[in-house]
Design a protein around this nucleic acid. Sequence first.
DNA 1: ATATATACTGAACATCTGTACAGTAATCAA
DNA 2: TTGATTACTGTACAGATGTTCAGTATATAT
Lengths: 202, 202
Amino acid sequence: MKGLTARQEEIFEYLLTCMKEENYIPTMREISTHFGFKSPNAVRDHLMALEKKGLISRRDNVSRGIEINPDYLEQENRGLPIVGRVAAGTPISAIENLEGYLELDNLYDCSRHYALRVRGDSMVDAGIWDGDFCIVREQPNVENGEIAVAIVEGEATVKRIDRRDGYINLVPENEFYSPIRVDPSVTDFRIGGKVVGIHRVL
Amino acid sequence: MKGLTARQEEIFEYLLTCMKEENYIPTMREISTHFGFKSPNAVRDHLMALEKKGLISRRDNVSRGIEINPDYLEQENRGLPIVGRVAAGTPISAIENLEGYLELDNLYDCSRHYALRVRGDSMVDAGIWDGDFCIVREQPNVENGEIAVAIVEGEATVKRIDRRDGYINLVPENEFYSPIRVDPSVTDFRIGGKVVGIHRVL
DNA sequence: ATATATACTGAACATCTGTACAGTAATCAA
DNA sequence: TTGATTACTGTACAGATGTTCAGTATATAT
């Protein structure tokens, strides 16, 4: 943190703790009693210092009107730092290597996506292994050639979709497997969504 | 939601919006003016109804003292629903199929993990493709046979690690590539961490 | 040596805020 | 019909809260 005094850091830390643990912003008097100050003005001085240093902003005359700079608040929720080229000697956590953040949760809208655990190795040549999680965007159809969740007679499988001549071909990506041809007029079939991501826990 | 009237739902929705978008709890008068009420007591009635129905709790005599029941607040942050067997006819979103939640962000502690974008196809046979994100737990060493980030002369690569006879063998998983043998007494070498997950955005 | 920033105390003030009480009107169940 | 619930208006009040001003003391920089 940039140029904070020990006391200012303590107070800022307390603000972060309140937000993280109780999800509320304390009043100046609450902060005051927490630190044992005898005047709320002591807190005010610190808050104004924190504001000047850009860590918070204050809404005038508004109770609990402290807004924590999102850069610091979401420190933990930014996602995983994406590290680029690693220079010799520098620790990997060095910020210079930062290319961005991999925000896994933000990547996929929970209301439109779900995860499906893959069983079997029919898609290994597409880099989808047994036990992988397919991240699926729920949609009723996909374009030819896309990988999708196909639901045949209530059984969900991940395959490449190829509609042709009124049939639906479920094309595996494994030389030892053959495509499955489905006649939608005979067999109960629907698309469960498009596979938009893969996640594997090693 | 359980037994909420339309108005109560509007107000509760407003509370959630404030928390989600501005990260603060409004005062009763702020809610009042938002809805165009002419008395803060109108809000109070609704808040007490919401409290009775268990959606919020109120801290007495405390400004902005509304706490939203975490069950509703974190509704969106549960992660992706993991869907299991899909029964014929049932929509995939049916809760009966729920096996759990894939909480990607919670899976990895941001302070100990980082993501590294894979370049090249030296690990395709391990199911790691060009462009994949390796999720790496920062640690100074790994066991033999584990996949890790190897940093050789400042260049980071993902390989299977095999220490042998004082040398470190960086073993690719691609029949067209050969292992690289590193002499740590000559070449600058260190482990950047263990690969604990793979994520691919299609 | 002087000025500036930090880290408070202490008292007072205006207003923000939750609360209380008294109503009105509409809806709905017993 | 009666009573309860919902959905407000309107007034008033006590206390919570941000703010201001006047100080004190210490450390740090110029």
